[in-house]
Nucleic acid binder design. Structure first.
Lengths: 192, 192
DNA sequence: GTCTATACGTCGATAGAC
DNA sequence: GTCTATCGACGTATAGAC
């Protein structure tokens, strides 16, 4: 008798958990990005997610694990085609798009985890992809400089906001950065 | 009679304080640079300086004041001459020289003080100096990009260390960065 | 599944002994 | 001038009630 009505709502145990977990993760991402690792508190994340602090611990076990889950980046892609233009496309997206997930890493990798192994693996893959698109013999150094430059511009625009880079249009920035990438990515190629 | 011998050691009150204070400041700079603001503790700084935690408070009053003193940069200079070459000289120094003081700011400004007013003032002056060396009408944006690029490369070399930029020779980096600065600083000028 | 209560450590800062 | 002792607040993490 009572079992019939109890079985009706099938998405209440395994699925409500997913929903709550996703809400916590979103709140964690936003908080880590805004405050960095140390200043982010479990209580703050729980409050932002509308749940209790104990529940966050119940789901993720520790603050470290919560950060690791929040900082997991979806994918770093580099469009095919002319190397310089591909890099400019990647830069433009990071100038405009909501960079919440990226900012979690950018900010927290500097404050917290020099041992954030997961991030370093992703970064290495990203560097390889750039290096593969760069023809010269010192591809590794060129790729490293390109990555550093992109990181610097993104940090300035979204975190530091010290200069005109913070408010300028993406078009203007991309236009000024084109010769930069053409030079570093090997301007003598990439026309076919 | 007793006054004669008592006046002999003249550098014991006002000068030993300076020495201890300098030792604390050096320890604070190193610790802030290594750990960032939040993870740095008064106790840790005191221990590294070989003194007691209470003494650090006695001298500096608060952790915030200690950080402010430790993060005070000596000066940001931009050599005169061709804009691009001046920027390269500045970059080279930051690639090689002991960047302790700079790293305090670089790391901590990202983890702690979006309101670190003192640093923002210094950064504005630095941007003005770059902008003055850049002829184009969009000098502010160009100066911002140049500063962002330098910051990105310095962060990668000294803090992140994810790529070949960390280990490459300053010569190789400067050589690859020359066309970058020539492009952004207005390559059509600065030949005379 | 969600929340309350709390144990346990560490922090910045203060007061006062030597 | 330097250090010891301690306060009050807040952090993560745990145990267990509902």
């Amino acid at each position: 008798m009572s079992r019939v009505s109890a079985e009706k709502p099938r998405r209440t145990r395994a699925d409500q958990r997913r929903e709550t977990e996703a809400r916590i993760l979103a709140a964690a991402r936003a908080t880590f990005a805004e405050l960095g690792y140390e200043r982010t508190t479990i209580r703050g994340v729980a409050s932002a997610a509308g749940v209790n602090a104990g529940l966050v611990m119940h789901y993720f076990g520790s603050k470290e694990e919560l950060f690791s889950r929040a900082a997991r980046l979806p994918e770093d892609d580099l469009p095919a085609g002319h190397p310089a233009e591909a890099l400019l496309t990647s830069l433009r997206r990071r100038l405009d798009d909501e960079p919440v997930a990226s900012l979690v890493v950018l900010r927290s990798v500097l404050t917290h985890a020099e041992a954030s192994g997961e991030f370093r693996v992703a970064a290495a893959a990203w560097l390889d992809r750039i290096g593969a698109a760069v023809p010269a013999g010192d591809a590794a150094l060129r790729a490293g400089l390109i990555s550093s430059i992109i990181t610097g511009v993104v940090i300035e625009r979204h975190l530091l906001k010290l200069s005109a880079v913070a408010d300028a249009s993406a078009d203007d920035i991309v236009a000024l950065m084109r010769p930069v990438f053409e030079s570093l990515a090997g301007e003598g190629r990439g026309t076919g």
